[in-house]
Design a protein around this nucleic acid. Sequence first.
DNA 1: CGCAATATTGAGTTGGTTCAAACTACGTGG
DNA 2: CCACGTAGTTTGAACCAACTCAATATTGCG
Lengths: 238, 238
Amino acid sequence: MLATAFAPVTEHEFAAPLPSLRRSSDALSDRFEQHATRPLAAKEHLFCEGDKATHVYRVEAGHICIYRTMSDGRRQVIDFAYPGDVIGLGAIGEHAVNALATVKTLVRCLPVTTLTDLAQADPRLGMKLYEAISRELLAARELLFTVSQRTASERLASFLLGLSRRNARRSENPGEIVLPMTRSDIADFLGLTIETVSRTFTKFRNDGLIDLEQCILVTILDAAGLEALAAGEAEARH
Amino acid sequence: MLATAFAPVTEHEFAAPLPSLRRSSDALSDRFEQHATRPLAAKEHLFCEGDKATHVYRVEAGHICIYRTMSDGRRQVIDFAYPGDVIGLGAIGEHAVNALATVKTLVRCLPVTTLTDLAQADPRLGMKLYEAISRELLAARELLFTVSQRTASERLASFLLGLSRRNARRSENPGEIVLPMTRSDIADFLGLTIETVSRTFTKFRNDGLIDLEQCILVTILDAAGLEALAAGEAEARH
DNA sequence: CGCAATATTGAGTTGGTTCAAACTACGTGG
DNA sequence: CCACGTAGTTTGAACCAACTCAATATTGCG
């Protein structure tokens, strides 16, 4: 059990509010600029459980799905990494999770040795890493709570609102969400089956909460309604 | 969402293998020695969600339950802290979780300001914090996986084995587990109801996996059987 | 266009919950 | 030391949200 987890840190956690200044102001993200990139085909793994943790990565384009599996095929998706997100933090020995490009993707690679050397020289970077992982921990617990305590509708509402907020942070339209992952990925993220995810999408559309086009484009029609659902203000009271 | 999570780090994560040398060899735990202690009555909170994160604590005696709640009362227990465990790491602003003493408890308190000052002077401490939180992240994801993907029997088996392994690490009897928490705490940890937890305990006893005395003392009779259950090697195949 | 992969919808089943009642452990005061 | 009350646990029976299995409908790619 020397392995330590890897996962995305959402962009805003390193970022100044202004998009144009985003990464240029951050001690950690700065380190990536002069390092090599690596292209990944759709469905190509960046790394797998058990691989030696040699690098930390920043997604430049595309999307990475972070997940774990059990021997019998049960899968837990832990996070979806978007451009700007850093993945691979938290590793000391080997990877405890898998990182899979869902589409054609480009990542920038920073050797872990470089990172630790830099941290030895600059205590502020060590604290930055600590804070970055602390936020990942917060996200992991939020997901734990969602999966463990909420109904299917509440889970999907939380998920959509999370993506909407991510859009807002990135100065994209929070009312329109493009899903770069399959129903299967969403199901394994939320601890549901693809059928339940699909049915819940349909239910949201019928209830006028969202609009759905081509399975991939979600338009939020009633953000307040979704918020209420996610907060457990509906259904829970019978 | 500036709050950052707090939670236990199990003792062995800071520890040398020999019990007597345990904490004396660790950069982080050393910092606690000269600091003040604080006694807690049973069911007294050490801190609550939203409280300013002023200190980091090490449990000296007793037990602390870390949890989050939803407005309608749904509760997620995140961890149980034992003597030697450090809690409160990961906080930058305010607490995102509650910490409740389940029994009469003693904690040692280290101010966060002291910790950050020390980290500024010593880059190694910053990395220690980073590694400590990384392990908490790993534990949080393990729990996420358990709660999201496993059946009630698998969850309880994992839980008991976790406590058994903790005993082994602490050079205590891994075959006998004293439960310092209620069925309700276990249920909220595993994402089940108290009834299901109770029924599953009974089932384990009937199946000869464990012996149960006074709800509080669990004797493991068939560790291999529990391991198989936790790994999904039973039941999952129907 | 045609095929393969993904998504939706339907029908029946079930593991875990809910509601309810009985039982046990334990601390307190008479 | 025991009666009592309270909190926690176990057990039972009915129910339901999500699952499984199965068929149909999209989507997108070669």
